[in-house]
């Protein structure tokens, strides 16, 4: 049954991906200024014929519809083409950048869970008290300021206060785990503050829901201690919807780290995408947007499956 559900979900993802790739293709080709023009900039000394040669060389002389079909055909076989600007394979560019973005998104989610869940629970248990209000107020602050603004404040604060703290100079985790974590910590917190507020809100609401359930009331009536009720009975059920939010946020962050990557000079996929759009490097833009789309869809399906695993009451059908 479950397998059939997963297959169904995967099949329904196909039209979404095709629509997505069509969106990108049309958009990037409609925007004025093409890859060759931008490559040559305002110091362009080439003649019309020389320009034409370049278009032919990169297959850009064909109609856009044909270019799309060729791209789609190659995509199905796992070939995302090569960058027009650097000649590098798009798949290898993604393979290099995706781990950085994923790590950033993942660490942000971890941070936001560590902060968000306990405070959300406390807030729910102490509903409508001063503690509840102050936690909610503080939480909302994280949602209320532009992320790049918080990021720059942190950069300036840390570089001025902790003079020896390494903020820049990303290295992969497997090479130097400690330095990697040090460099990733501040950006992950910056991004995580925003998500923490949402996780906190979700934990609070869902905890409140659970606490108002019949079986909790029965437990109270039986004289089970409040602490035990919350830890043993309520917590597990309250955390289920939080998993969904965390999953959805993870997917969202994979496409939403552009500004933080730029701010903290992290070599991630978001910055590559922004750069590729600015340069109209068509294969790179198409490749990354498609990849992000596939990742988001896969994560959503995974979350749904996880959801049914931890909560047997939920029937995927």
């Amino acid at each position: 049954m479950k397998l059939a559900y997963i297959i169904g979900r995967l099949i329904s993802a196909i039209p979404t991906i095709i629509i997505l790739t069509l969106f990108v293709f049309i958009a990037i080709h409609m925007v004025p200024g093409d890859v060759i023009d931008i490559m040559l900039g305002t110091q362009n000394f080439l003649s019309e014929e020389q320009m034409q040669e370049l278009y032919v060389k990169y297959g850009l002389d064909k109609p856009v519809a044909v270019q799309y079909l060729v791209w789609l055909k190659n995509m199905v076989t796992g070939d995302l083409g090569t960058s027009i600007r650097t000649g590098e394979k798009v798949t290898s560019m993604i393979a290099q950048k995706f781990p950085v973005t994923f790590e950033l998104a993942f660490l942000s989610i971890i941070f936001s869970i560590i902060i968000g869940i306990p405070f959300g629970i406390i807030s729910a248990v102490k509903k409508n008290t001063k503690t509840d209000y102050s936690i909610r107020f503080l939480g909302l602050i994280g949602l209320s300021a532009p992320v790049f603004w918080i990021g720059s404040l942190l950069i300036v604060f840390i570089s001025g206060t902790f003079v020896n703290y390494t903020l820049f100079g990303f290295v992969p985790f497997i090479q130097e785990p400690l330095k990697n974590l040090q460099v990733m910590l501040v950006p992950a917190i910056t991004l995580g503050l925003m998500v923490a507020a949402q996780i906190m809100r979700m934990s609070r609401n869902s905890m409140l829901d659970v606490l108002s359930q019949e079986y909790i009331k029965v437990a109270y009536a039986k004289g089970v201690s409040k602490r035990k009720i919350i830890m043993k009975h309520a917590l597990r059920n309250a955390l289920i919807p939080v998993v969904t939010i965390a999953g959805i946020q993870l997917g969202y962050l994979i496409g939403g780290t552009i500004i933080i990557e730029k701010m903290f000079a992290l070599p991630g996929m978001g910055r590559l995408l922004l750069q590729a759009v600015n340069q109209r490097d068509y294969p790179v833009v198409q490749g990354i947007v498609t990849f992000i789309g596939v990742m988001i869809i896969l994560i959503n399906i995974l979350v749904d499956i996880l959801y049914s695993v931890i909560d047997p009451r939920i029937d995927l059908n």
Partner: peptide, 13 residues
Amino acid sequence: EEISRVSAIRNGD
């Protein structure tokens, strides 16, 4: 980012 480059000088990165 400009502010990041200045900070990288300031903390010796």
